[in-house]
Amino acid sequence: MPNDYLLTVISNIGMISLIALSAYLLLISGEISFGQQAYFGISAYAGAIATTLWGWPLWLALLFGSSLAALAAGFVGLLTLRISGLYFSIATLAFAEMVRLSLFKLTYQIEIDGELIGPNGAEGFGEIRWIFDNDVSVLEYTLLIYGILLLVLFFLVLIERSRLGMIFRMLGQDPLLTRVQGLNPVRYKVTAAILAGFIAGLGGTLYAHSFTYIEPQIFNMMLGVHALAYGLIGGLGTVLGPLIGVAIDIGFLESVRVIQGYRMVVFGGLVALMLIFMPRGIFDEKRVYWLKSIARRWFRA
């Protein structure tokens, strides 16, 4: 049993890392989104409906949920990215609340084996039985989560090495200068929003099938705020930054018993301290650059 508990923590870190990465992608592009939980939630519901009610295989449900999330993110992006800064942040939060409140109203149940199954408003959506029906063990499912996480990381590293990634960072550093380099910011910000929506979506569908029960309340603002905080703690200089943030929060703060009751206090204090002393996180651009140049020297020697 303790083994299973450990695996649950580890798989939780993997799934939450995906929403943290999605917030990170927007952060490096200079946009603070308080609403990535919306895409996580949309995909959690859509993916779970696809496997549980329509009998789709998980991989297809993952693609479906994440694409739907990406579509929604692109739509919200087009509407809001022309406004920037605080207004953008508030708009993303408003949209996410809209999604959450709509999920309270979402009832779509089908009788399966004499039982009504499907999302039922505030009651939530249980019996997401794909794992049991397919005899997937906790270990196997954890491996699946990490396989997908690795794919996403690989993809993000590719982006960071590409022109697109450079433009994302340019937008984050100086949007006006980016325009004065002949680049249309809206186009790239929408691209970032769509990619971020898709990545959050992957986390959502995986989450629904891991916990086998979801309810609208899970996808509230605190999830989005945490997703943001992870990148800000771990650092915005590398894709590993948000993962380190998640590991610190879920791996350390949640697991250490003494902290239990004070977890939110400790976490909030940590975020505040970070914002004051390391505003772009532990592994920010400068430290990553420094580490890379040390590594390069090592390789040459």
Partner: peptide, 11 residues
Amino acid sequence: TFQNIRLFPGL
């Protein structure tokens, strides 16, 4: 160019 230097500091 800008009166106050503008570069991408992280590039």
